[in-house]
Design a protein around this nucleic acid. Sequence first.
DNA 1: AACAAATGCAACCGCGTCTGT
DNA 2: TACAGACGCGGTTGCATTTGT
Length: 508
Amino acid sequence: MTSESDERMIPINGADSPSTDDANSGGDGGLNGPLKKGPWTSAEDAILVQYVNKNGEGNWNAVQKHSGLARCGKSCRLRWANHLRPDLKKGAFTAEEERRIIELHAKMGNKWARMAAELPGRTDNEIKNYWNTRIKRRQRAGLPIYPPDICLQALNEGSQQNEDTINTFSPNDVHRPDFIQISTLDVPSLEFKGLEINQPLYPLDIPSNTLLDISTNTLLSQGLHPHPHPHNHPFYLHPPSKRLRSGAPESMFPCINIVPPIGMSQYQSNDGLLLSCPSSDPSAWAMKMELPSLQTQMRNTTANTNWGGPPPSPANNPFFEPADVLMQSPPPNEGAQLCNLSPQNSGLLNEVLYESGALNNSKTSYSFPQPDSYIDIDSSNANVLCDAEWEPYGERLSPLVHSLDDPHSDETKQPVKDEDDYLNPMQYNDKFETNPTIFSKPDFMYPSTSFDGPVKQHPMNDNYLLKDVIGTFLGDDFRDCKKMDTGATSSSQGHCHDSCAWNVMRTI
DNA sequence: AACAAATGCAACCGCGTCTGT
DNA sequence: TACAGACGCGGTTGCATTTGT
């Protein structure tokens, strides 16, 4: 970039500076006046190149001191690394590079720097931009994010990995660098358009006057599941990007519903996501798959309920009110919905397959938690929220993957062979309608059956395990909460759950 | 041709980690 | 051991360009 325009200047050590770290640190700064921001000019490039050629890389804050360049060290490093390095490969990615990126992303997720290390001459920023652009394109086209052969490869690798790891998994594994190197199949893209305001929703009459515009990579590239590392996961209760043009509130969700256009069937994942697919014309639906239509299911803040769990049926639930309550920030204490988000699923290709393997290994089928298990925080165990909603490991599967690991459906265990082999929406629909057992999966809440049946505890439902994991994600604050949990009254437990889950999120 | 929306890229920002003192 | 500075990473934003109406 050699634009001469936009020479924004930030005062060194000035109060107007938005950043107090590298931008202003490490230099006297006053040498040449305010630091410049914005696009680099060719003259600045020349100065930087000359400096680096003479002094080598590193010690970037010294650049500004010694070269007179009015740029912070951080900016210099970025400019050099992304544009001026002599070993940079310019131009579009080659087909081989593109394939490599896809493979690497399936393995690593959004580890751009690591991916860049595998692609000589390419920068993390370049790869990141490429990937974000790519998934947007593929979503628009209704294509899976990962090509089927990548899925197959990951499936094979993942199944092997599962053999080795499923029985030795521990909460600490989420800290392992390779923990998320488990993969995901592509999740079905979700129709975002053609929504009807105030249309009747099945089974819920959810006011639909507020539609959530969630960035596409947030949902789809991450497989609709929260990330084990909230800071790195855009879906993990990050506020909507400023770019959201729908004017979504600063904080949102936690429960997100996909409102189906008329004629669409709807099912709900255990993440509280209502997924839509057409009852009549799945192929058209597949072709139209674009951005998800999402609505945060908001409830009356005074309702005696919590944020977790699936939407109760409207007939008997007091907080399904025809009020304009969708897509608003929950009150600070209503954070238990966080428990509705799996802490361990990054949406990586391998990860979902890993979970699929976990399910297969468990040889156990589960039933939906009853609404009561969500609503009644005042249970003998305040962790009921998380126990019921943060399904234990291996339970956070996208609908697509669920079809793969459905133990009652042999054909769905076959690895995908082709993009055409991805289950289309009608296949999902058919499964739901013809195979009741699939509805016993906790994250496959078909509306007509979601709220019936007893709650069964997952065999891996271990409170300590869950607490440790939650603590891992939420930090010491949650551990503090855990202490309160053990000694508090049942009502305070519920409150603790709410408040800590929502409030301690470090990146919201 | 004019305008708006969508797109893509470069740069910025905040935060975590590393390293030296 | 504690602290501060340097560095690196990943997510976000700004804006020029492209595309569509």
